[in-house]
């Protein structure tokens, strides 16, 4: 079949050459440091959760698309990505059926129900996670102590994740946690979120590749930090140092990997800035005044629901037609 010399089509005409496959590959590469950090601190248990979750996610997507007679898209890696992110959010100690259930909910309700990749309004991995969290909170909240594979001494400074310690035992209990332990991830927690270093490696790779926009993570971290700083200034004895809120818990992982999922975050500049700041402030709001230890999952879901409204803030179109004759 010969192609015509001139092809008539609608814009855009210039393609960067990036495909969904390449984008998802970038994401998966960016998550490798987090997966390795999980293995480094928690051993094979962390890998087990990630692998089960990823495999189930792919199987669920394949089954759904087969059942509906839609083209199979599991080879683009988006289902695997959702599974990996969900696996990284779960404690390495959960029973095997937790990641299975979570991945099925994430893929079917969080993603495919709305028409698949790019159409779902809420972060699919977080839909699965919050579903599990609400239903099986007691199973999700037991965390193993970090056992670094080599080089580092086991952290052992606290027995629960730092945010839990802060909530239950107060500011005094977290004052002496070495910043280095928090930064490297030498504290109890989940495989993905525990190590700020790993998250930064992967996140900056994504930013450098242009897969995510830098505004959202930056303003999310900034929002968290400024909110915490204001709290600290207002009543110093009730709050930990602002940097603690950024390093501990889910903050960094949320900023780089959860808030930025394709299709669930705004695309205009003011939208992205407001979205990032909103994520940061809501994370802190739920942490400080809410019941739950870690507010990031709910904060991101809430901001996801605001995304269509934030996308309405757009520049005026130049030279628009006043009235069609």
């Amino acid at each position: 079949m010969t192609r015509p010399d001139l092809i008539v089509s609608v814009s855009p005409h210039i393609h960067s050459g990036k495909s969904v496959d390449a984008m998802m590959r970038d994401w998966l590469i960016a998550l490798i440091p987090c997966i390795l950090a999980g293995w480094f601190f928690f051993g094979f248990a962390a890998l087990r959760v990630v692998i089960i979750s990823a495999l189930t996610a792919v199987a669920a997507e394949a089954a759904w698309q087969k059942a509906l007679g839609r083209p199979l898209t599991i080879s683009d890696g988006s289902a695997a990505l959702t599974g990996v992110i969900l696996g990284l959010l779960l404690s390495p100690e959960v029973p095997w059926w937790i990641p299975v259930l979570g991945a099925v909910v994430a893929i079917l309700i969080g993603k495919q129900l709305f028409g698949g990749l790019g159409n779902h309004p809420f972060n699919s991995a977080l839909v699965g996670y919050t579903f599990l969290f609400i239903s099986y909170q007691h199973l999700l909240e037991s965390f193993p102590m970090p056992q670094p594979a080599f080089l580092l001494e086991p952290g052992g400074f606290i027995e629960y994740p730092p945010m839990d310690v802060l909530k239950m035992d107060g500011v005094e209990a977290v004052r002496d946690i070495p910043w280095m332990d928090l930064f490297l991830g030498n504290v109890p927690g989940t495989a993905g979120t525990v190590s700020v270093l790993a998250v930064l490696l992967g996140g900056l790779y994504l930013v450098a590749r242009g897969t995510i926009r830098w505004q959202i993570p930056l303003f999310c971290l900034l929002g968290t930090f400024v909110f915490a700083a204001i709290c600290k200034v207002v009543s110093p004895q009730n709050y930990a140092a602002p940097i603690f809120y950024v390093l501990a818990g889910w903050t960094c992982f949320s900023a780089f990997f959860l808030a930025t999922e394709v299709g669930t975050c705004p695309v205009t500049l003011p939208g992205m800035i407001l979205y990032g700041l909103g994520c940061g402030c809501l994370i802190m709001t739920i942490r400080i005044w809410g019941t739950y230890m870690e507010g990031a999952a709910f904060a991101i879901l809430l901001m996801n629901s605001l995304t269509p409204l934030l996308d309405r803030i757009r520049p005026k179109v130049v030279g628009r037609v006043e009235q069609i004759a």
Binding site: I109, F122, G290, A299
Partner: peptide, 20 residues
């Protein structure tokens, strides 16, 4: 159906405010 599912997910997100 999708409207109901969305409303459910919205309610799930609003659970984050519990306890405030």
């Amino acid at each position: 159906p999708v409207g109901l599912a969305t409303a459910g997910l919205l309610a799930l997100a609003f659970l984050g405010f519990i306890g405030m």
